[in-house]
């Protein structure tokens, strides 16, 4: 018997003829009870708690906020489909990934990356990238040391369940909660290891 069939046979033997399990109780919270303003406040609070930088702006001041967040950044990389308006106040050079993909070395040389996101969860301060509009492929937001992420207020949901329910499972997904960190030394949290050491979230409210 091959390994697959043997393992499946073992598991069936282990379970016996009539395995059963009780129904799953799903009375945990799916939606928060926050209004829009409170939800954004919570989101900001959690991000700051993780040592992320946060800017709040309106659609009219977005470009200005992006420009300020990218102060000092000379080499910026962006996904090929980044909205043009985001960069109007950025004086440096933005290199787009695509149609010819940037090399890892190009990404390593970049000072920062600017993207959007798919959805964000306020209660945990999490932003989720799914490779969709304005986000690019995963390497883009990983190799540069500074990630600036634009989140619109309507993308911010309450907790993890609400975020999960907005996502398409088969896309490559990255959940980001603050900058990279480790707790491996005496269980004290230190921000900044292999992933971007700076995370700057720009929240756009209309």
């Amino acid at each position: 018997m091959n390994a697959r069939d043997e393992i499946l046979a073992r598991l069936r033997t282990a379970l016996g003829p009539t395995p059963s399990a009780p129904p799953v109780p799903r009375d945990y919270r799916v939606d928060d009870d926050l209004d829009d303003a409170a939800r954004l406040e919570t989101f900001v609070d959690r991000l700051v708690d993780y040592k992320a930088e946060v800017t709040r702006c309106t659609p009219d001041t977005l470009a200005e906020a992006v420009g300020a967040a990218l102060a000092g950044v000379e080499r910026l990389v962006v996904p090929g489909d980044v909205p043009e308006g985001w960069l109007s106040a950025y004086p440096g050079t933005a290199v787009a990934d695509g149609p010819q993909p940037l090399t890892v070395s190009d990404l390593d040389d970049a000072d920062a990356v600017l993207t959007g996101c798919a959805v964000a969860a306020a209660l945990t301060g999490t932003i989720v990238l799914d490779g969709g509009a304005g986000q690019g492929r995963r390497a883009l937001t990983l190799v540069p040391d500074h990630h600036v992420c634009v989140v619109t207020a309507d993308q911010v949901v309450g907790g993890v369940p609400a975020a999960i329910r907005r996502l398409a499972p088969t896309r490559p997904l990255t959940f980001i909660s603050g900058p990279s960190a480790t707790s491996d030394i005496e269980l004290n949290r230190v921000e900044g290891v292999h992933g971007p050491r700076r995370l700057h979230v720009i929240i756009v409210e209309s």
Partner: peptide, 19 residues
């Protein structure tokens, strides 16, 4: 002991041009 760990990755097979 965190609300959420910094990074969670999910992948399904192969995504062309990504990973």
């Amino acid at each position: 002991g965190e609300r959420m760990n910094p990074y969670t990755s999910m992948w399904t097979g192969v995504t062309p041009g990504d990973g």
